[in-house]
Amino acid sequence: ATFKSLLFLGTGSVLHATGERNLGRLGGLIRFMPWTAWAALVGAFASAGLPPLSGFVSEWLLLQSFLFTPGLPDPFLNMVVPLVAALIALVAALAGYTMVKFFGIIFLGQPREAKLREARDASPWERVGFVWLAATCVLLGLLPVQFVIVLDRVTQLLVGAGIGQAVARNGWLLLAPTSVDRASYMPAVFLLFFFACCG
């Protein structure tokens, strides 16, 4: 919900600033609309499922639920679960590719139309929305354990089960929906590793 809202806000900001709906006529807007561009980049990376953003955590938890499903009583369901997991991974990859391409067409390269040089960046209220949604994407990716625990009340009400207690037992740093032996994710450690590699 957060990265899609961020991308919709970014798209609306571009449409409002340029009046252009044809992506082929856009380009180079990062120079004239930096706030919008950086917010859209966070949304595109989250949509692509890159860690440590919210899109990665949601896709990872969804795939974990399929891959580590306990034995189901129906052999047909046991056969369908890996196929659905593969389909979800494919859809996520295609969506991520599309969003990164969307960012590249609109914000990178050279302006394709002279009127794009007059584009104004986001208004102060739009910037507040950008910052709020981008920060939520980052926080959901860096602190997934806390959000899973909070949302566990909702899943308990809706389906009568949840992973909040299992996740809470491993501490705030380690997200392990089933058990540490099977799969775990440490977003803060991943982020430090990423910065070390960049350095």
Rank of each mutant, 00 (worst) to 15 (best):
F3P: 05
K4F: 01
K4H: 02
S5V: 08
L7C: 04
L7K: 04
L9W: 06
L9Y: 06
G10Q: 10
G10P: 01
V14H: 02
L15A: 07
A17V: 01
A17E: 00
N22D: 03
L26M: 00
L26F: 00
G27E: 04
G28W: 00
L29V: 03
R31V: 01
F32S: 01
T36I: 08
A37M: 01
W38F: 15
W38H: 10
S47Q: 08
F56L: 13
W60R: 10
W60N: 10
L61G: 12
Q64W: 09
F66R: 10
L67A: 05
F68K: 09
P70W: 07
P70V: 13
P70G: 14
L72T: 13
L77F: 12
L77A: 13
V80Q: 02
P82G: 03
V84H: 09
A85V: 04
L87D: 02
A92K: 02
A93Q: 06
L94Q: 04
V100D: 01
F107M: 07
L108E: 02
P111A: 02
L116P: 00
L116Q: 00
R117N: 04
D121M: 11
A122T: 11
R127V: 15
V128H: 02
V128S: 05
F130T: 07
W132T: 15
L133H: 08
L140E: 11
L140H: 09
G141H: 08
L142T: 08
V145C: 04
F147H: 13
L151F: 14
D152R: 11
R153P: 03
R153H: 13
V154K: 05
L158A: 03
A161G: 01
Q165V: 15
R169I: 14
N170V: 12
L173M: 15
L173I: 14
L175F: 11
L175D: 06
P177T: 09
T178L: 13
A183H: 07
Y185H: 15
A188H: 09
V189P: 05
F195P: 07
F195G: 08
C197T: 10
C198R: 14
G199H: 12
G199Y: 14
